[in-house]
Simulated assay, not measured.
Amino acid sequence: MTTEHTLLALLDSKEAEVIARAEWIAQWVETNRLPLLSGQLDTDAATLLAEVNTDQATQLNQAIYLLMVSGDKVPLTLQVQRLLEEGLTVLADDAWSNHVAGLEDAMGDEQWEQYQQRSAA
């Protein structure tokens, strides 16, 4: 295989890996949305909302202000949904790392070396 063909194959593999990761995470989020809301995960919605960063807290406070001043529930509802999706995505990313680690553990030594060489390229 020429260098160009090897490079294209490696890039194709990396792209496939990125796509697989994105699809896996999206599926994990979808599967675990209802368990999160019903308290069946190791965390819950309130905990995810309590872990917001400064920008997210500002947006959440603005949505709460709109609810209290004008009675408009839509901004708060949308903000809570957005924050929960972001929190689930973070959890899914951790779950993906654990999933990949499990796959790596199941690989033979030769497969693992091939994977490392591909990842290093």
Rank of each mutant, 00 (worst) to 15 (best):
V80Y: 00
E110P: 00
E110M: 03
T6R: 05
Q27E: 12
Y115V: 13
K14A: 14
V100K: 10
S119M: 12
K73H: 13
E15M: 11
V29H: 02
Q111C: 04
V29E: 05
D42T: 13
V80K: 08
L67N: 12
A26S: 09
N61L: 12
D93I: 04
L84I: 11
L48Y: 01
E110K: 05
D105T: 01
Q81C: 02
S38N: 15
E110S: 03
L10F: 05
V18C: 11
E17M: 05
S13W: 07
L76I: 04
Q56V: 09
S97K: 15
G102D: 06
Q59P: 07
T31V: 11
Q40S: 13
V69F: 09
D42A: 12
E15I: 08
K73D: 14
V52E: 01
V18F: 09
N98W: 15
Q117N: 11
W96I: 01
L67S: 12
V18S: 09
D42E: 15
Q117K: 09
A46G: 08
V74G: 08
D42Y: 08
L49E: 01
L48E: 04
S70W: 01
E51Y: 00
Q117T: 06
N98A: 14
P35W: 12
L11E: 10
Y65A: 04
A50T: 03
S97H: 13
M68D: 15
M1V: 03
T31Y: 06
M107A: 02
D72T: 03
A50I: 00
V74L: 12
N98Y: 14
L91G: 02
L60C: 04
T3G: 13
L83K: 02
P35A: 12
G108H: 08
L103G: 14
T43L: 01
L49I: 02
T43A: 02
E113A: 03
I19H: 09
A46S: 14
Y65N: 01
I64N: 03
S97R: 15
L34S: 14
E85D: 10
L11I: 08
A95H: 08
L78G: 11
V100N: 07
L66Y: 13
A46E: 13
T6V: 05
T6C: 04
E4G: 03
L8G: 09
I25A: 02
V69E: 14
N98G: 14
A26K: 10
A121M: 09
K73T: 15
M68A: 14
Q59A: 15
W96F: 06
A106V: 00
G71V: 12
I25Q: 06
L34T: 15
P75W: 00
V52M: 05
V80S: 07
T3A: 13
Y65P: 00
D109L: 03
D55I: 06
E85N: 09
T89H: 12
D93K: 04
D94M: 02
E110N: 04
Q81W: 10
K73Y: 10
L78E: 15
I64E: 05
A9R: 10
L66W: 02
Y65L: 02
I64Q: 05
T58M: 08
R21F: 09
R118K: 08
L37Y: 15
D105A: 03
V74S: 08
A120Y: 11
M107V: 00
S13K: 04
Q27Y: 07
R21L: 06
K73I: 14
A45K: 02
E17G: 08
W96N: 01
T47G: 03
T31F: 10
I64K: 06
N53I: 07
G87C: 03
A46P: 01
V90D: 05
L103S: 13
V100A: 04
